[in-house]
Design a protein around this nucleic acid. Structure first.
Lengths: 145, 145
DNA sequence: AACAATAGTTGACAAAATCAACTAATCTTC
DNA sequence: GAAGATTAGTTGATTTTGTCAACTATTGTT
């Protein structure tokens, strides 16, 4: 074990956790909680998601999700349909209102991130993104083995 | 606003949030919660911390912290002393048991991270750390302005 | 001295998350 | 194709986590 390396990585993790925390703050001022936003994100991106897909993707409790979806339904954000193939499972879809809400949140998130990085030059921004890409590559390549 | 760049950064953020989540899982199997571990971390590193220092550093509610510290006191993890200079404020210090507990947790965290990266070559590890350093630099430099 | 501000505690409560038991449907195996 | 096991999602009960406001004691301000 490379102690010094591990230490530096954990230091970065603390730094980045804090940065992510700053980013999430915009959600505190929104109508939704962080888990709710994550679920909306999944619903928007995984079209025709089943509840179990969300549970798996976000690693949240199925009862927790079930209640969250009930709220969403009451607010007309989603449409629930029992699957024809398997009547136990439920197909979930954002309603047009749901999509609108998600896009609004998404936009706010973009804007907020943009503000945090507003002073960064094009060049620095390109570098930042490249470092991120490399980090992801290094971690993912390693995981596969 | 550079849409494509923002999008890539947020994509990385999701990826890294998940990675951090994996790292935090070891805590779920420990005797402490994530906020508790964070407080222990601060107490270990900010010697002679006041409660208000922790509140500020971690941006948690003072009542929440107050109760957490009460738990720690009951478990003999910390020593609380009212300050001489200001009898309203409290000096906090990890007891030897508290230090021991923190170091155990810290070790477990190191080990867990090490496992996640176990297959990574020395070279890749060095690269990873360099990318992290650069990300931090780019973000911090930008913030100052 | 009178009033405002601050550090931390306490009570009451709300939000977030978990656990176990349950229903209905489907899959497995004989 | 019936019996038993498994799975998807719901519901009830509860715990954990976090917040808000009111309060005490002390210190700072004028």
């Amino acid at each position: 074990m490379n102690r010094a390396a591990i230490h530096k990585i954990r230091e970065f993790n603390r730094f980045y956790t804090h940065f992510l925390g700053l980013l999430d703050q915009y959600i505190l001022h929104s109508k939704y909680t962080l888990p709710e936003v994550r679920v909306l994100y999944e619903l928007y991106h995984i079209r025709k998601a089943k509840a179990s897909d969300i549970v798996e993707a976000l690693e949240i409790d199925k009862s927790y999700l079930s209640r969250m979806l009930l709220q969403f339904e009451r607010k007309n954000l989603i449409i629930k349909k029992t699957s024809r193939q398997d009547k136990r499972s439920v197909h979930l879809q954002l309603s047009s209102l749901g999509k609108k809400e998600f896009l609004t949140l998404n936009k706010a998130s973009d804007t907020h991130l943009n503000e945090l990085l507003s002073n960064m030059s094009i060049k620095d921004l390109a570098q930042l993104i490249n470092h991120m890409k490399e980090i992801r590559r290094l971690i993912e390549e390693n995981k596969k083995q």
